[in-house]
Simulated assay, not measured.
Amino acid sequence: MIDHTGVTVSDFEKSKAFYLAALAPIGYTLVMELPASVTGHTDVAGFGEHGKPDFWISRGTPNQPPVHVAFRAETRAPVDAFYAAALAAGGRDNGGPGIRAHYHPHYYGAFVLDPDGHNIEVVCHCPA
């Protein structure tokens, strides 16, 4: 089981604003933010649910190649809402909401590239 993951971003404030907006439809908030003076190397921000950060961004040179991170939703509506919110926050389309039957018959996902080109997805595995 994965406890947490993250990406490195080139513009920390821009990416923080992007993720605040893009992940809000799935219930994620900014849970924790730590400056370089605390971490000893760079500024970080942790997003998650229920007070537990499980997705982190850190200031620095973006991961190359860009990273793919998928978040799970219990229904399809948050997938659609994520996609709209992420695009409105400056994300770039990388595959609109829809069934990806090549994964399985109920795989409903949407893909957006964040400001650094990381492929961010929200997916629902349940039938409509």
Score class of each variant (00 low, 15 high):
74 E>I: 13
79 V>N: 01
61 T>E: 13
109 G>C: 14
26 I>T: 10
114 D>E: 10
66 P>K: 04
112 V>S: 00
23 L>C: 05
41 H>N: 12
49 E>F: 15
90 G>P: 01
97 P>I: 13
83 Y>L: 04
15 S>Y: 07
103 Y>M: 09
41 H>P: 01
3 D>W: 14
94 N>G: 05
36 A>C: 07
16 K>Y: 03
3 D>M: 13
21 A>K: 10
88 A>L: 11
19 Y>E: 02
121 E>D: 13
65 P>Y: 08
52 K>L: 14
18 F>H: 03
82 F>W: 03
51 G>T: 09
104 H>G: 05
96 G>L: 05
29 T>P: 14
50 H>Q: 15
55 F>R: 11
106 H>T: 14
7 V>D: 00
6 G>P: 00
105 P>N: 09
88 A>T: 09
70 A>C: 14
10 S>P: 14
27 G>A: 03
101 A>Q: 12
10 S>A: 15
91 G>P: 01
42 T>E: 07
94 N>D: 14
110 A>Q: 02
114 D>W: 05
69 V>Q: 08
10 S>T: 13
84 A>I: 09
99 I>L: 15
12 F>V: 11
126 C>W: 15
117 G>V: 07
15 S>H: 09
19 Y>T: 04
45 A>F: 04
53 P>T: 06
111 F>H: 07
27 G>L: 08
20 L>G: 02
42 T>F: 11
42 T>W: 09
107 Y>T: 04
105 P>H: 08
63 N>Y: 03
90 G>C: 01
28 Y>F: 15
84 A>H: 12
18 F>L: 09
85 A>S: 11
96 G>Y: 01
78 P>H: 01
4 H>G: 12
125 H>G: 05
61 T>W: 09
6 G>L: 08
44 V>G: 03
7 V>G: 04
107 Y>V: 10
54 D>R: 15
106 H>E: 08
5 T>P: 13
7 V>M: 08
67 V>E: 01
28 Y>P: 10
71 F>S: 00
85 A>P: 07
98 G>D: 02
98 G>M: 04
60 G>E: 03
124 C>R: 07
37 S>Y: 14
99 I>M: 11
94 N>F: 08
